[in-house]
Amino acid sequence: MLDGITNILVVGIGGQGVMTAAEMLARTALNQGYDVKKTEVAGMAQRGGVVSSHVRFGPRIYSPQIDPGEADLLIGFEAAEALRWLPYLRPTGVAMVNTLRLAPPVVSVGLYDYPADPIGELAQAGIEVHAFDAGAIATELGNAKLVNTIMLGAISDYLPFSAAVLRDCIIEGFRAYKPKLAEINAQAFDTGREAGHVQTSS
């Protein structure tokens, strides 16, 4: 986190909640008094394409984009997507990855191969990797949609502000708009936070 600026890249596939997760991080940073910019290219995101959302915050942010090699944190909602965006991470960066494997039609019909061990490849790159099955936790908690909050919980101890402020920002949002889901999301956040502590060794 150079010059007091934090660069977070959130990546995944259209429909996974990548943009919502990025929005939560940006809002929390705004509440903490940072200047914030968030950008994504997701023109056809709903059609199963790649989604990447850049969140930058610090004393003053000009360009909204994170340059390759400049991300402090990489949050991957899918294993191969995390690997795709690895060149954006600093050598000292942290990757928080959901081990879910989603093969697109081009892989399914045999035009391309899905990487055999994307998490292993990430770990071999010398960065700090934390990988776990967020989907399994969500299923256990009874709602597949919780993956988003689980991933945010997982990253919450690697941010320049406390996990509690991110947690509050998320849960406040649920209290205001979907109060019934507040409790289960709080649980998802905490479970994700635990899961995120485990580092994958190369």
Partner: peptide
């Protein structure tokens, strides 16, 4: 020079 990602393409497709 950074190693280029060799991950398969994921073009948008019909739902």
């Amino acid at each position: 020079t950074r190693p280029q990602s060799t991950v398969f393409p994921r073009p948008p497709t019909m739902c």
